[in-house]
């Protein structure tokens, strides 16, 4: 394999991997704090993408401008889902047996409802935003780098840094971390745990609002798009270590590079088999993930 090809592979792997990591951040945050695997994660990304597309289609908003609407909108949606639906589970858990799968099932129900509501509203047609920036490249040496993908890549690094800084240094961030470590102790020291949960879930979903807007310039949208991103995100989070913010970005990049390299030697279909295999192996051999604390 020549050097140029290798450089191309690394570039492709890094770009798509960064995007995988960014998309998975919210899943990891929510799991880290609330111990919930949000099965509807991919569907919420899909909703964000539809929203960005809708704003472009009706108001002509550039997706990057639409992000200023999709982020708060998705925060609101996440906050509502947590405070109106999932919170019931927590109030019940206090009294009754803890059923770790209930949350997964509940969010699976939300996934079915969201995917099919979008199908009912927007129909099955494939939608896409057509903006010129989608094809713009800059060059590193001879290697073209697609600008919107690069922006999404940078965004995931920025969001991850911002998020981990904020969790460490702000009051709210500290409260979130305290809740994640010990819910009961947090309650006793006066933290409003249900509120923290609402905010965390909202935040996790708001990140999807950002990526929804950043992805529409180059991805086309269908109501069923969520599941493939959702499954990718599960793999990323497990790879990186569940609940670890930086692990998530690293996990994404590892998966991206793995797929990029594997796809050069085998067909994409076999590469998909390998990435599921990698996922199983990591879970079995190192369940804490690459970056997780053992």
């Amino acid at each position: 394999m020549d050097l140029l090809l290798a450089a191309h592979i690394v570039k492709n792997g890094l770009l798509i991997g960064g995007i995988y990591g960014g998309v998975a951040l919210g899943l990891s945050l929510i799991f880290g704090v609330m111990r919930i695997i949000n099965f509807a994660h991919g569907s919420l990304l899909m909703v964000a993408m539809y929203l960005a597309w809708f704003l472009w289609k009706t108001l002509g908003l550039h997706p990057y401008v639409a992000a200023f609407i999709t982020v708060p909108a998705l925060f609101g949606l996440g906050y509502l889902i947590q405070s109106q639906i999932i919170s019931h589970l927590f109030t019940r858990e206090k009294a009754l047996v803890v059923e770790p799968l209930s949350a997964l099932l509940l969010t699976a129900g939300i996934f079915l409802v969201l995917d099919n509501l979008v199908l009912m509203i927007f129909g099955p047609d494939v939608r896409a935003v057509s903006v010129d920036i989608a094809y713009a490249n800059f060059f590193i040496g001879e290697i073209p780098v697609n600008i919107p993908r690069f922006i999404a890549f940078v965004a995931s690094i920025v969001v991850a840094s911002g998020l981990s800084y904020w969790l460490k240094h702000s009051n709210m961030g500290r409260a979130i971390r305290a809740t994640a470590q010990n819910r009961d102790a947090a309650t006793m020291s006066g933290i409003n745990v249900p509120f923290i949960y609402n905010v965390t879930f909202g935040l996790g979903v708001a990140i999807l609002g950002l990526f929804g807007a950043l992805l529409v310039p180059f991805f086309s949208i269908t109501p069923t798009l969520g599941l493939s991103f959702g499954i990718k995100s599960f793999i990323v989070v497990v790879l990186g270590g569940i609940g670890s913010i930086w692990g998530c970005v690293v996990g994404g990049i590892v998966l991206g590079l793995f797929e990029a390299v594997a796809s050069q030697f085998v067909t994409a279909t076999s590469a998909a088999i390998f990435s599921f295999g990698l996922f199983i192996v990591i879970l079995l051999v190192r369940p804490k993930g690459l970056m997780g604390k053992a």
Binding site: S228, K232, A260, T269
Partner: peptide, 12 residues
């Protein structure tokens, strides 16, 4: 070369 339907990236 085959690809998986619904693939999110064709770079490779």
């Amino acid at each position: 070369e085959a690809y998986v339907p619904g693939q999110v990236d064709f770079s490779a």
